[in-house]
């Protein structure tokens, strides 16, 4: 199971980031959301959703093995093991190994799916590996 983004549906409202902060930190603070929305304006006028697809590059990069995959296929960062070297934040190909001044360690998506449930546009979906062709879906919407 992983998250997938359908960029063509995104309106940039950011509901996903706020619900992520509420679900995971019980706080109203989108900057603690573990995904990002990028607006490409004025041209070409599109949004890109950057989210964690549990690719595991962060775990491969971590020098102290503080990031481990669990039974559900989700990479979890162990804050007690983390030495805050930030190698994972540099390595993350999606730019969603997050940091925040309130936290000593990086933090990442744990696949709680609050973003999937809250997105008013159905632009974020959770999929089993290989069960949906998002690229094809995007083309159809476009």
């Amino acid at each position: 199971m992983k998250l997938s983004a359908i960029n063509e549906k995104c309106s940039g409202c950011g509901t996903c980031r706020l619900s992520c902060s509420l679900e995971n930190f019980s706080t109203v603070s989108p900057s603690k959301g573990m995904l990002k929305i990028e607006g490409l304006f004025p041209s070409p006028g599109k949004y890109l959703i950057h989210l964690c697809d549990q690719c595991g590059v962060c775990a491969e990069t971590c020098p102290v093995d503080a990031i481990q995959i669990n039974d559900a296929g989700v990479y979890i960062l162990n804050e007690d093991e983390c030495i805050s070297c930030m190698a994972c934040t540099d390595a993350c190909p999606k730019g969603v190994m997050m940091t925040h001044k309130d936290f000593n360690t990086p933090f990442k998506c744990i696949l709680c799916k609050a973003c999937v449930e809250s997105c008013p546009r159905d632009a974020i979906i959770s999929v089993e590996d290989g069960d949906i062709d998002v690229k094809k879906m995007e083309k159809e919407i476009a």
């Binding site: 063509e8 995104c10 309106s11 940039g12 409202c13 950011g14 509901t15 706020l18 070409p44 006028g45 599109k46 949004y47 008013p120 546009r121």
Partner: peptide
Amino acid sequence: ITDKGCFCCPTP
């Protein structure tokens, strides 16, 4: 080209 929503808006 795209719908463009304000903060937390379900009806852009």
